[in-house]
């Protein structure tokens, strides 16, 4: 094989390798996950307000969904302007229902789901605070808030 031919062949080989590597690497591809907010209360919950903070700087919300109970406003209230203007590390969600007490959720119920996308290697770190929870008559009630994230598949 002549020297010129060897050079050409080597170039092809390098190109092949580079293309295979670039196709598999996909730099910048995001990962998707869900963040579920649960409220647990002995009393029927008619209204709730939650503040969620992400301290890792990796959260990008790509969808907002109400919880399991169909009587609540769909979707929950949130600050659209800030959320759509820039990446944010904080969101306040709230919703209410005018259903009668016997039709409201009791016990542990999912109140909202966020669909998020993260990029880079940082793992998101969530903190949630229950700002307010209320009963059907409008009186405040005690409740516990938990956050569950579905691992990225």
């Amino acid at each position: 094989m002549s020297r010129a031919a060897r050079v050409i062949v080597a170039a092809f080989a390098a190109l092949a390798v580079a293309m295979v590597v670039s196709l598999s690497a996909q730099p910048g591809a995001g990962r998707f996950a869900t963040v579920d907010l649960y409220v647990a209360s002995d009393m029927p919950v008619a209204a709730w307000q939650v503040e969620l903070t992400e301290t890792g700087g990796a959260m990008q919300i790509v969808g907002i969904e109400r919880g399991d109970d169909a009587t609540f406003r769909d979707p929950p209230f949130y600050d659209r302007v800030v959320l759509e203007r820039a990446q944010t590390d904080r969101i306040v969600l709230a919703s209410f229902s005018l259903s009668a007490a016997d039709r409201l959720p009791r016990g542990r119920v999912r109140i909202a789901r966020l669909h998020v996308r993260t990029t880079g290697t940082a793992q998101p770190d969530y903190e949630a605070r229950l700002v307010a929870a209320g009963a059907a008559d409008g009186s405040p009630i005690g409740a516990r808030l938990t956050v569950e994230t579905q691992p990225e598949r």
Partner: peptide
């Protein structure tokens, strides 16, 4: 209640 939160929205709606 002395503060403005979702419970006020609920009260208004009710």
């Amino acid at each position: 209640s002395g503060r403005v939160d979702i419970l006020d929205v609920l009260a208004l709606a009710r």
